[in-house]
Amino acid sequence: MNAVLIAIALVTLGAAAVAMTLRNLIHSALLLIASWAGVAAFYLWAGAEFVAFAEVLVYVGAVSMVVLFAVLLTRRSRDDLTVASDSARRAFSGFITGGAVCGVLFGAVIASPMGVMSSPTPTVTVRQIGTQLMGTHAASLLIVGVILTVALLGAIVIASADRKDNSEDTP
């Protein structure tokens, strides 16, 4: 059981790490999609089927498309895709901060006593999720719906070009 988890973790982390270091943006985005799929595999491993499929549907299906479209829309020519390498200072300070956070988190996880719990996989049916979403968490569901609507409207307003700018965009 642990072997499967370690394999999933290695694939996910590897894809994410390589994605963050590549210079070709398209390759980065596609590798990140692979790492999201790895996260979905982890959910499956943990027995949360519904969340795994939702993750694939939202991230691999939808967010990936938004990202790829954004990458293609924000470049001037085809060869513009390889990002200029970042300054060494920035990368160095990034690594220092990230490494420090990583050290703290790892230390905390390893040091904290967590008994070996051999509880059976909790099963949660779609029906349970549905009743809880519509019952106990109905208010949060409504709020999430409003947030999504507002966010998408806002995204359209921000991204759509001003009418007077059109002459500038034509070549």
Partner: peptide, 10 residues
């Protein structure tokens, strides 16, 4: 599967 239709479209 309990969430078979969701799996299909995912």
């Amino acid at each position: 599967l309990d969430a078979a239709v969701l799996y299909f479209f995912a």
